[in-house]
Design a protein around this nucleic acid. Structure first.
Length: 615
RNA sequence: GUCCCCAUCGUCUAGUGGCCUAGGACACCGGCCUUUCACGCCAGUAACCGGGGUUCGACUCCCCGUGGGGACGCCA
């Protein structure tokens, strides 16, 4: 075993959910261990019998796992320094206590809570620091024996010797405390269970911890612990105290500041990668002013001396911003899987995979957290179709009705007209819009693809980079395809009202247009955006109102249709789009309209337009 | 109250004596792009807590104030 490699630990007490502050401490330790090839020990500090709960412990472990913070030794993993629950290490503490008793460095204290409280108040009223004055230290043998005989339980206090206690903190520099100001503290309670400072020292030493990285709120405990190391003859580890996370009011982040538990963020649709990124960034900084930094890179560049010394306010806006970045570049399959619980929560648990992918691809640029998918699922759900007051107001205008009616008419026209040969457009290079939807100037869009690197998903270009032609079923390079039962390639006719036809449906490739090549690290934030989505074609039946499009019209087809609509009505811009958006989605904002069209499909489109007209 | 820590835009930060007329990001505000909102792109508003030193020269070093935070439990 090499003594060079550091051993750090994260030691939560299972008395509540994992708080982001603690999660950040855990992350720092994890980062430190990974960065320097050390080991992370997870130790459960369950010495507070009343508040400790098994459920909390399980939740904490689950939250750490969710964050991707794994430990090398500890619950569930074992290790050579176990057990890893303090409640199972009582004999060890007992031994150490005996040694201190033998050395005469501790004494039994018979003071009651009331006595202690009275002393505290008295000191406070004299404007003195509240601390134990050592009443029981002066007990003579006889009194001591009498108290013991009376059955009064005694706690053990460590007698703090006068003198300077100095140490070097890896983050804050040289630190010094005067022993005189400390007051004797309890190391073993009257119920025989060790108190925090004692258990920590005994465990950190016996577990071979080399670096203690924890919050600044433990700074003053360090002095006490150092005294214990000295008394026990243990070599102390190195210490690093990071600043705390603050709430908007600059006070230590707590319950009154809203969401503070990792669990809550998870429920709010925050991705673990985003939270980890944010926590690593908070009160610190990556090199070169980077903000978006994946785990691996964070590990590679991690250093204790990049940690700031002052408290940092937790900024949910920034967390959400990072989250939106991760949502936008996450591989579709993974994103879809992450969305599952939220989709189910919105009541669409049975939606078809390809259908879901289509919707996700259409809206991912519009959402900042996973819960927002619910809204969009509803928008695309025919059964939930409903006009918001704003939408209703827009549709009420005669001009709007005219636009809607025109689109309806246009949709009724022979398909041949607006359907083109979709193949190829979104090929990697982006160029391709051949489509030519029946009109002279076909859509000229999608010219962006070209030089812009893609969305820079460093790492997993292949999963999404291959823009696939849409019309062609064969092209489903979509890995997810298999999940769609029987993606048999039915004819492309729109003849069949999709519902019945082919449940598995042609799976629209979920890929995005961009070339996966782009992405040098760092360009994500500036990556190219617009892409013409895939054809959100026919979907599997969901059993809910999200049957899916009944044809294979792609966004580009619809662009062409919209173009013609513009010609016919002479309306452009918001005078054209707003009524359409309102009528189709019932909302005034949302994903690009052509994508919405494609997701809905022609039949649904018509039904909605008709409904809007009669609304 | 005592002890300890901290102090650059609203927020997170870069800055380690001259490169600073202080840089980046979020948020905000404009503009552009998109035949619409959003996304994206471009630009803008906005900070060195105060006072003394040290120095040829301080955001950077020292001291004192002030402000904020943390700790003062038989919680961890």
């Amino acid at each position: 075993m090499n003594d060079i490699s550091p051993r750090v630990r994260f030691a939560p007490s299972p008395t509540g959910d994992l708080h982001v502050g603690n999660a950040r401490t855990a992350l720092f330790n994890w980062l430190f261990a990974r960065r320097y090839g050390g080991r992370l020990v997870l130790r459960i500090e369950d010495t507070d019998r009343l508040r400790t709960s098994r459920v909390f412990e399980e939740n904490i472990l689950a939250d750490l796992a969710w964050l991707g913070i794994d430990w090398d030794e500890g619950p569930g993993r074992g290790g050579p320094y176990g057990p890893y629950h303090q409640s199972e290490r009582l004999s060890l503490y007992r031994e150490c206590l005996e040694r201190l008793i033998a050395a005469g460095m501790v004494y039994p204290c018979f003071c009651t809570d009331e006595e202690l409280e009275a002393e505290r108040l008295s000191l406070l009223s004299q404007k003195l620091a509240p601390r134990y004055l050592g009443k029981c230290l002066g007990l003579d043998e006889e009194e001591r024996r009498r108290l013991e005989a009376s059955g009064r339980p005694a706690a053990w206090r460590f007698h703090v010797p006068p003198g300077l206690i100095a140490f070097h903190d890896l983050i804050r520099g040289d630190m010094r405390f005067a022993g005189e100001t400390l007051g004797d503290f309890i190391i073993v309670r009257s119920n025989g269970i060790p108190a925090y400072n004692f258990a920590v020292v005994v465990d950190d030493h016996h577990m071979g911890i080399t670096h203690v990285i924890r919050g600044e709120d433990h700074l003053s405990n360090t002095a006490l612990q150092l005294l214990l190391y000295r008394a026990l003859g243990f070599a102390p580890p190195r210490f690093a105290h990071h600043a705390l996370i603050l709430g908007r009011d600059r006070a230590k982040l707590g319950k009154r500041h809203g969401a503070t538990a990792v669990r809550e963020f998870r429920e709010q649709g925050v991705l673990p990668e985003a939270l980890v990124n944010y926590l690593a960034l908070l009160g610190s900084s990556f090199e070169a002013g980077r903000e978006f930094c994946r785990r691996e890179e964070t590990v590679a560049s991690f250093s204790l001396d990049r940690a700031g010394k002052s408290g940092a306010v937790f900024d949910e806006d920034k967390l959400r911003w990072l989250n939106s970045l991760y949502i936008r570049q996450e591989a579709p399959e993974i994103l879809a899987r992450r969305m599952e619980p939220f989709v189910a929560a919105a009541g669409y648990g049975k939606i078809g995979v390809s259908r879901l992918h289509g919707i996700i691809e259409a809206v991912r640029d519009n959402i900042n957290d996973l819960t927002e998918i619910g809204d969009y699922l509803r928008i695309f759900d025919d059964e939930a179709y409903d006009l918001s007051p704003e939408a209703r107001a827009i549709i009420a205008g005669p001009e709007a009705r005219e636009v809607i009616a025109s689109l309806l008419a246009l949709l009724a026209e022979p398909l041949a007209d607006d359907r083109g040969d979709p193949e190829d457009r979104e090929d990697k290079g982006g160029r391709g819009d051949k489509v030519d939807p029946g009109g002279p100037d076909g859509p000229v869009a999608w010219e962006d693809g070209g030089g812009r690197g893609g969305r820079g998903d460093r790492g997993e270009p292949s999963d999404r980079g291959e823009g696939k032609a849409t019309g062609d079923r064969a092209a489903l390079g979509d890995p997810e395809a298999k999940e769609d039962k029987g993606g048999r390639g039915d004819g492309d006719g729109l003849g069949g009202r999709g519902d019945k036809v082919d449940p598995g449906g042609p799976v629209g490739p979920v890929a995005r247009e961009d070339g996966g090549d782009g992405g040098e690290p760092g360009d994500l934030e500036a990556s190219a955006r617009k892409s013409d989505g895939p054809a959100f074609t026919a979907g599997s039946r969901g059993g809910d109102g999200l049957a899916g499009a009944d044809d294979e019209m792609t966004p580009s087809h619809y662009r062409a249709i919209i173009e013609r609509l513009a010609e016919r009505t002479g309306r452009r811009g918001k005078r054209l789009f707003l009524p359409l958006r309102a009528a189709l989605t019932g909302r005034v904002k949302g994903p690009e309209l052509d994508r919405c069209f494609a997701v809905l499909g022609r039949a649904s489109l018509r039904r909605r337009l008709e409904k809007a007209l009669t609304a």
